[in-house]
Structures are given as structure tokens and as C-alpha cells.
């Protein structure tokens, strides 16, 4: 049974159909990448999964149960963590407090929540920054803070929205390593990514969309050689 099933997902914003009848699955232990040109509807799919806004049509099944219409915080509690493409650090809190706050998702005592946060920060190579205010972190740190905060809620499925965007080459390698290590802890990953180096090296499967519709799905090699995908990306470049 798939961990997450997206079934005929459609999302319209007053006439603009941002996502149109998209279906795909993420299995337990998998890393699936969602790719597509700018404005294809990738972030919108994430926002539908964690119910930032209601679906226009279709259904989303997590661990066998529909999560359609649930509150966002409930979906996190069920085991779906997410990061934001436009990072949302809790700016006037320290890095440690950011992660402690989300540790409370599974833990009630403050000591345990803080211990958990420190563990997660160490895992994300952020421990040395723990006492800094979140707003003082550079973009690479902010991206890792997003991940740390999501991990502290102990998700079964992690949604990563362009975690690698804006990173320098060494940070990029670090990010790839981090995503791999997250998977090794048993967390499945659905990620949106533009940087092909990341997509091609760590994805088990890729789902490609354009204008809100599926154009291809398969292994990295299959998708890389897919005509529709090449056209979507080259077409965009040549436009």
C-alpha cells in the first residue's frame, strides 16, 4: 500500500486551474521528485496536501485514509512534515527555540522537547547555530532550519519544497547528503526541485508536470529522456 496517494487532484484559483487531474503515489521509504517549469503547480500540490487550501476536486490518501478537508496542524500530527519554498523562519526566536516549538508536536515536557531539538539540530548540522536568532541565519541555514523544524515533528513523509535552491555547490552536496540520511531514518520524501543534480542523484522516481498536468513519470533516466519533459524545459528556456 502506498504511503501517500494523490488521486485526480485538481485545484483552481478563480478560473485559473493551477493543478489539473494529477495522480501519483509515494511508497514507504521512497524519494519521489516532483519537477516542472516555474508556475507548473508544484507548490500548489504541496499546499493541497497539507490543506492550506481546499481541493477543487480529487482526493489525497495518507496511510490508507483520506486527509481531504482536515486542518493543517492535524495533517502534521498525522505524520506529514513540510518545508516552505519561501522559507518561514520564526525570526525572533532562536534556532533552538524554533525546533523546540515543533518538537512539542509529539513531546509534552520541555526538557524532552529541547533534547529532541538538539538531536535534530545536530542531525541537520545546525547545532553550532542553536543560540542565534533565526533571522540572523543565511539562506543555507534557513533552508536547513526548515528541514529541522519539520523533522522534529517526527514525520513519516517529508515534503521538501526547493530545499536546494540558492545553495552554493558545497552546501548542495551537504543537502543531498542530508536528504539521503533522512531517508535512512525511515522517512519517505516527496520533493520539489529544480536543480537537476539533486533530482537525478537521489530520486527513486520522478513525476513531471507542466501547466498543472502530468507530462511524465518514471525513473530518473526515463524522465530525463522523455520528449515532453525536454520540450517543457527547453521550450521554457527558448521562450
Amino acid at each position: 500500500m502506498a504511503l501517500l496517494e494523490i488521486k485526480n487532484l485538481t485545484k483552481s484559483f478563480r478560473g485559473l486551474t493551477a493543478v489539473n487531474n494529477v495522480s501519483f503515489e509515494v511508497d514507504e521509504g521512497e524519494i519521489v521528485s516532483l519537477i516542472g517549469p516555474n508556475g507548473a503547480g508544484k507548490t500548489t500540490i504541496f499546499n493541497c496536501i497539507n490543506q492550506f487550501f481546499p481541493l477543487t476536486a480529487g482526493d489525497i490518501i495518507f496511510r490508507g485514509k483520506s486527509i481531504k478537508g482536515m486542518k493543517t496542524y492535524k495533517i502534521c500530527q498525522l505524520g506529514i512534515g513540510r518545508t516552505f519554498q519561501v522559507v518561514k523562519p520564526l525570526k525572533r526566536m532562536t534556532v533552538l527555540d524554533n525546533v523546540t516549538a515543533s518538537s512539542f508536536c509529539r513531546i509534552n515536557s520541555i526538557q524532552d522537547a529541547r533534547r529532541k531539538a538538539i538531536e535534530v539540530l545536530e542531525f541537520c548540522n545546525l547545532l553550532s547555530e542553536k543560540d542565534k536568532l533565526a533571522r540572523s541565519l543565511p539562506i543555507g541555514g534557513r533552508k536547513r532550519l526548515e528541514i529541522a523544524r519539520a523533522l522534529a515533528t517526527e514525520p513519516k513523509l517529508l515534503l521538501l519544497d526547493e530545499t536546494a535552491a540558492g545553495l552554493n555547490p558545497s552546501e548542495l552536496d551537504e543537502a543531498i547528503d542530508l536528504i539521503r540520511r533522512i531517508r535512512e531514518t525511515g522517512v519517505s520524501i516527496l520533493m520539489v526541485e529544480h536543480i537537476m543534480k539533486v533530482v537525478m542523484t537521489i530520486s527513486d522516481r520522478i513525476h513531471a508536470i507542466n501547466f498543472g498536468q502530468t507530462i511524465a513519470e518514471g525513473t530518473p533516466e526515463e524522465v530525463a529522456n522523455n520528449k515532453a519533459v525536454i520540450e517543457a524545459y527547453l521550450g521554457e528556456k527558448h521562450a
Binding site: N50, F52, K71, T72, Y73, C76, Q77, G81, R82, F84, K88, P89, L90, A101, S102, F104, C105, R149, A150, A152, T153
Partner: peptide
């Protein structure tokens, strides 16, 4: 929004 996605009601 971040708080809500961290599991906070």
C-alpha cells in the same frame, strides 16, 4: 502558517 504546519492548532 509555519506554526500550523508544525502541528500547532
Amino acid at each position: 502558517d509555519a506554526a500550523e504546519s508544525m502541528g500547532i492548532n
